[in-house]
Simulated assay, not measured.
Amino acid sequence: MTKPSQAELKILLDDETLAQSAAAWLTDLARSREGRLAIALAGGSTPKRTYELLAEPPFRDKFPWSRTHWFWGDERFVPHDDPRSNYLMAQKALLSRAPIPHVNIHPIPTVGLSPQAAAGAYEAELKSFYGAQELDPQRPIFDAMILGLGDNGHTASLMPGASALEEPRGWVVAVEGVASEARITLTYPALESSFETAFLIAGAGKRSALKRLRADDAGIPAGRLRAEGALRIFADVEAAGTVLG
């Protein structure tokens, strides 16, 4: 298991170079893996440019689209056409602009059922894709997991104080009462089940949280993550600051 303090840290000049570096990492990783691929996307503003770059040359021409499946680490419990939707952001930036088979896109359901039922449905879909009911540390669900970092130290929708932080076995849970809308999120067991994991972190507002992440601070949700595979942090100089430079 890899702690955040053991992650490979790459400090980039600005948002654009961060996005370029992250897109190159993801493309190289996908091309190096054989067979069917699974990638979990993050929401938020920082990954958006990375997704846009993947849908443009030169990355678009290199990426193994036909064998890559796309999942989400978390989602706001709003319709997929709502401006707050993580799915909508990814759809506009990447999914609608790249040659991705529709059956390879696996959004979290958010309409016509309760948050708890949505979490159960997504967990069932993940287990069907994975082909087992229990996780094998030697066989991660995902080839790549993209994560963000909130200024309060949350990642995915693992929020400070949420009961989801203590979920030991479930793969997906509903998070209610800690944000303006309910969320559906992967739990630590599912988030950690990836061949490679990368945090994308930008902006001076993330500096304190990034410092705590790098210290494995269990007082923030992201600091408790223990990746089963390689762990990387792509941060711009504003987030890194002089402490990490």
Rank of each mutant, 00 (worst) to 15 (best):
P168I: 11
A144S: 12
E238F: 08
A19Y: 07
T110N: 01
L231F: 08
A190K: 11
G170K: 15
S193G: 12
K3P: 00
S66N: 13
E238Q: 15
L113C: 14
Q20T: 14
D82L: 04
I146C: 00
A93H: 05
L12N: 08
Q91W: 10
E16N: 11
S45H: 11
D143Q: 13
Q133N: 15
A19H: 13
G148A: 01
T46C: 01
G241T: 13
R169Q: 14
L244A: 07
A117N: 14
L158T: 11
E75P: 12
A209R: 12
S66H: 13
P79L: 09
G161T: 14
E123Y: 12
L18T: 10
L231R: 11
L13D: 06
L95R: 09
D61A: 13
A164F: 10
T50L: 04
H102T: 14
A182P: 14
L165E: 02
T27R: 04
E167T: 15
A55W: 02
G35N: 13
A42Y: 01
Y130H: 12
R67D: 07
W70Q: 07
F142R: 14
L191E: 02
L213K: 13
P107G: 05
P221E: 02
S194M: 03
A24V: 10
I11G: 06
S180P: 06
L29I: 11
E134Y: 04
L231P: 12
G241W: 09
I184F: 04
S128I: 06
T27Q: 05
N152D: 15
G73M: 02
A174G: 06
L13S: 14
V173A: 01
A204K: 15
A38Y: 07
A240P: 14
W25M: 13
E16D: 08
A93K: 12
P83Y: 05
T197G: 01
A117H: 15
H106E: 01
S180A: 12
G161M: 07
L149E: 01
G205Q: 12
D236W: 05
R67M: 05
S114P: 10
A38S: 15
F63K: 12
D216C: 09
G241A: 08
T46W: 01
K206H: 13
N86H: 13
M159V: 14
T110Q: 03
P101I: 06
E52W: 08
D216W: 06
L9D: 09
G177T: 08
E52R: 15
A202H: 11
D28S: 12
Q6I: 07
G148R: 04
K211Q: 15
R183P: 06
A164T: 09
P140L: 04
D74L: 02
